[in-house]
Write a protein that binds this DNA or RNA. Structure first.
Lengths: 194, 194
DNA sequence: ACCTGAACACCGTTCAAGT
DNA sequence: ACCTGAACACCGTTCAAGT
């Protein structure tokens, strides 16, 4: 049933993923859906969980925390791109707290294995999650606009991988925070001009 | 008219900001709105622009780029928190490309004044924008859940300012990228470590 | 130039009743 | 346990027609 919803999402997009369309796709009356889910948001949360499942399966065992940020972030990016309108859907499920952040647990785990304070891992997890969802949302919306031919051709793809660059920037920021908190004296270029 | 919509947003929230409600608030038929705006998305984009206006007015003239990231990010955060459901609304207008990123121009400008390559400023702008919108979205949704009393009391406010911490992390990542790109010494910063 | 009236083609959700 | 039928209270958008 959530599987049918995911199929419908890929086939028709989020705006057409209505309770009524889902019902007819299942050969059932719309009201029947409310025996299985209390409301549409709960149904969408179940779909979000399926979309994000691959992120939880990633192994980051013996990576540094910044490296884990890169790996988990990339995996989440890929998982969102794998389904139509996934970032918009997941974004709202995540914001409503109906689904857990898929990057939180992995980052917390590797962090602990290396003596990183939980609060720092949590902060990193928030930054990564929000960045990935937001960036991919923007990215998927551009795909739609592109398909409709509403975009200047030179803004479609610069060839340059902005996603990885920005994610790397976040990972570097985390590395700097780690140095501050424990390791060797490696001060960061916190430049300030008058 | 967009002002009335903003007022209605604050008073009743995004789900109740319908063309029909807006029309009756203006003492007019719903169809009348379509003489002024081609559709609801365009109307919402106009509201988004009003919400984001304060971000463009910030002065970052003689700040380093990482410092500007902090200032502009904080300003955007504040602007979104100033109106009910603003982050959700702005998020979609931004994603649809109906409104410009309010952090892009300021960061590009300070970056140029200090010889930072545009591509790097663009990456920083993307990371900041997505993080701020995503984080604030999550934050505002928690406010709603809190108001409905659906949250464990210990997850409501940890007292600790996660937003600033994560934003600082991004700024540090940018500082690290800058060091890489143009050698150790920033014009006024004190950063050095082998 | 600006708005009305009326319609079109939809939504999510509830709930008694059926099997 | 699972579903139907029918209704309720809405949506955004279009368009001829009015002033």
């Amino acid at each position: 049933m959530a599987d049918m919803a995911l199929y419908l999402l890929d086939e028709r997009g989020l705006p057409d993923l209505t309770m009524r369309h889902l019902a007819t796709a299942l050969g059932v009356q719309p009201s029947a859906l409310y025996w299985h889910f209390p409301n549409k948001q709960a149904l969408l949360a179940a779909v979000s969980e399926r979309i994000l499942a691959p992120v939880g399966e990633v192994t980051v065992e013996n990576l540094s925390v910044p490296a884990a940020v890169l790996v988990v972030g990339a995996r989440m990016h890929a998982s969102l791109l794998a389904h139509r309108d996934a970032s918009e859907l997941v974004s709202s499920s995540l914001a409503l707290g109906l689904v857990d952040s898929p990057v939180r647990l992995p980052l917390l785990t590797v962090g602990r294995a290396q003596g990183v304070p939980d609060t720092l891992s949590e902060v990193a997890a928030e930054a990564v999650m929000h960045f990935v969802v937001g960036f991919t949302f923007h990215e998927q919306q551009r795909l739609v606009a592109d398909a409709l031919g509403l975009l200047e051709t030179d803004e479609i793809s610069s060839g340059h991988d902005t996603f990885t660059d920005a994610l790397t920037m976040i990972a570097q920021g985390l590395a700097a925070s780690l140095d501050r908190h424990q390791g060797p004296p490696a001060p960061t270029g916190e430049s300030q001009a008058p």
